[in-house]
Design a protein around this nucleic acid. Structure first.
Lengths: 107, 107
DNA sequence: TCCTGTGCTACGGTTTTAGTAGCATGCGTT
DNA sequence: AACGCATGCTACTAAAACCGTAGCACAGGA
């Protein structure tokens, strides 16, 4: 179990404390981007999220959800895991990703 | 050494072949996002890139650069590693990330 | 009470990443 | 030629992260 990267602290590959470095560490962990992506259309329960991620180990899923919760990107409500306002703003930057990937596939 | 995720093929967590899933697998590997990020201002030699990433293991750096080259996101020119046109288009989506991270740090 | 679904954990094995050292090649200088 | 130096890259061992199966503890409904 690893420490959740936080802005203003030393993270993997950077001791500057620059927020973007903490973000890149956080998002550069396996399944982190995918989890955010799968929550784009609304809340998912723990098990539904596991299914959506198609085979993720519950150990890792739990690590990621905890990190993302600690970071304020997602939250756990009555209807399951859901993006916070902050998380939705971050996802907005990734929204064009699917379109870009389609173009990428055609290269 | 792992297979480079490609659109149209089975990738980690998805057998649909959807391009965005291959992309999330590719970018979800350690240092992948960071490498792209560090190349944002221009080409870097292998060693300069290693320095920019602050302590990345050369083994992993080489794995990532190979994957990103295979994927057409970066290239190796006379002046070192550089984003391709495709890579720059992808990075454009991440450009707002630094600003978002600043806001995130203030939460 | 029994059944079901929830979030989550234990644990053993595999894969990935880390860290140090160094190789092979090319290039300019002496 | 012989040297120094920088390049991209690899070998090797150890540590960390991840996987996969099973199952726990709790809550709500029948």
């Amino acid at each position: 179990m690893t420490r959740t990267p936080r802005p203003g602290t030393v993270v993997r590959g950077s001791r500057t404390g620059k927020p973007v470095m903490a973000l890149l560490d956080l998002l550069g962990r396996r399944w982190a981007l995918r989890v955010i992506w799968e929550l784009r259309d609304g809340p998912l329960t723990s098990r539904a999220l596991r299914g959506a991620c198609g085979g993720i180990s519950p150990t890792v899923l739990n690590d990621r959800t905890r990190e993302l919760r600690d970071s304020g990107l997602i939250g756990l409500e009555d209807d399951g895991y859901a993006l916070t306002q902050l998380g939705r703003e971050l996802l907005a930057n990734f929204a064009p990703l699917a379109a870009w990937a389609e173009k990428w596939a055609r290269r």
